[in-house]
Simulated scan of single mutants.
Amino acid sequence: MTAPIRVFDGHNDALLRLWRDESPATVAFAAESPGHITLPRAQAGGFGGGFFAMFALDTDGGLDFAIFDNPPYDTPLPAQMARDAAWPIIAGQARVAQELDAAGQVWLCKTGAELRRAWDAGHPMAMVLHLEGAECIGPDLEGLDDLFDLGLRSIGPVWSRPTDFAHGVPFRFPSDGDTGPGLTPAGRALVRACVSRGMVVDCSHMTMKGFYDVGDEGGALVATHSNAHGVSPSARNLTDDQLRAIGETGGMAGLNFGTVFLRPDGRRDAAGALDHAVAHLDRMIEMAGEDHVGLGSDFDGAPMPEGLESAADLPNLVQRMRDAGYGEALITKLCHENWLRFLERTLP
């Protein structure tokens, strides 16, 4: 049996799931436990690594996906989260990453060269540590160096709520991302600090104005888990102009598998959601260029399509690409090579 094409993923929330699990993280990760990404499911589907997000979950336990059942919808942004509430949550998820690395279940990669070595060696899981929402960092950037020393190499200044640095887009359908102001002065300082350290700045969840502000500060424009607005008009998806800007700056856009960002009707319904994945890839490739598009699953963080319920099902997506006439060289680029080359250029 031919081994599946390996996938490097632009975004997942497995660390949050493992941090919340009552079992030790190394046990839950190795088991057939609930969750989109476990070692057995990754091995079955060719999931070889990616950006693993740390996220400060608020007290109500997260987003109620039932809001997506009856479009149109427009959810108000949650209030900003206090730094002293966010820091211990993020520190706990950083410890989970360190535990998985110490157990040899992942290779926590801190440079592009190290990532390439891990990938070429066939390590079970190459991890790049990501922060989704910078609530735990002070407006004076206190905490950034501590997180960098722990292995953090990618930051999304916002999730879909405001921070000291930027404003997130609401979960709104239909809408584009022009929903609020751009980077604050502290946000511009954060982006400059990230660029100087060779860190990725992720514009997923950010307003359109913030997206272009990131580009003005000299970084490659990256949206690790956002789709094509021209296919599904969600505020979380990227307009054609934004996709062009990603390509022009040498950045990356990662296809989000979440049903509500794939489906043209914006619904949560899993049935038929995978049918739209190639339409998004077609539009993203047309606008950004085939060297600037990858995958950004949102595993463990969003409702998944029928036929793509976990990392074990990634071959189903690859087969959809083949059925659409994508050649093996392009499929390899989309599945991992574009992300790896970008990170080799970017990470310190």
Rank of each mutant, 00 (worst) to 15 (best):
S232W: 00
A14Q: 09
W107V: 15
G198T: 08
I5T: 14
R320P: 06
W107H: 15
P170I: 15
L129W: 02
E132Q: 14
P139C: 11
A228P: 03
I137T: 02
D265F: 12
E344R: 14
A28I: 04
V231E: 03
W19M: 06
R345I: 10
F52Q: 01
A270L: 04
E99H: 09
W87C: 06
E22Y: 00
M127E: 02
I89M: 13
A14K: 05
L63N: 01
R322D: 03
R236F: 08
I155T: 08
E22D: 13
W339Q: 08
A235H: 04
C109Y: 03
A288K: 03
A193F: 05
D213R: 07
D178G: 09
F211L: 08
H130L: 12
D240C: 07
N237F: 10
D146K: 11
C335R: 01
D300N: 09
N70H: 14
T207I: 08
Q43D: 06
M125R: 13
Q98V: 06
G62L: 08
M287A: 15
A56Y: 00
W159D: 06
G198M: 09
A82T: 09
Q80E: 15
P174C: 11
R161P: 00
C109H: 04
A103N: 02
P34H: 04
A235R: 02
V201Y: 05
E309D: 12
Q319M: 12
Y326M: 13
G219R: 03
A302K: 00
A312Q: 04
L281N: 01
L262H: 02
P303S: 05
L221Q: 01
L238C: 11
D202A: 11
P139I: 13
E135L: 08
M208C: 08
G296H: 08
F68A: 13
R153E: 07
E99M: 12
H336R: 13
A44T: 09
T38Y: 04
R236N: 10
L221P: 07
E290I: 12
Q93H: 09
T2R: 14
L238V: 09
L274T: 01
F261H: 05
L334E: 04
R6V: 10
V222N: 01
M287Q: 15
F299C: 06
W159G: 03
A245M: 11
G218R: 07
S204P: 03
H229R: 12
D74N: 15
H205D: 08
G218C: 10
G138P: 06
A85V: 13
N70E: 13
L347R: 03
L100F: 07
G180L: 11
D323K: 07
I90P: 03
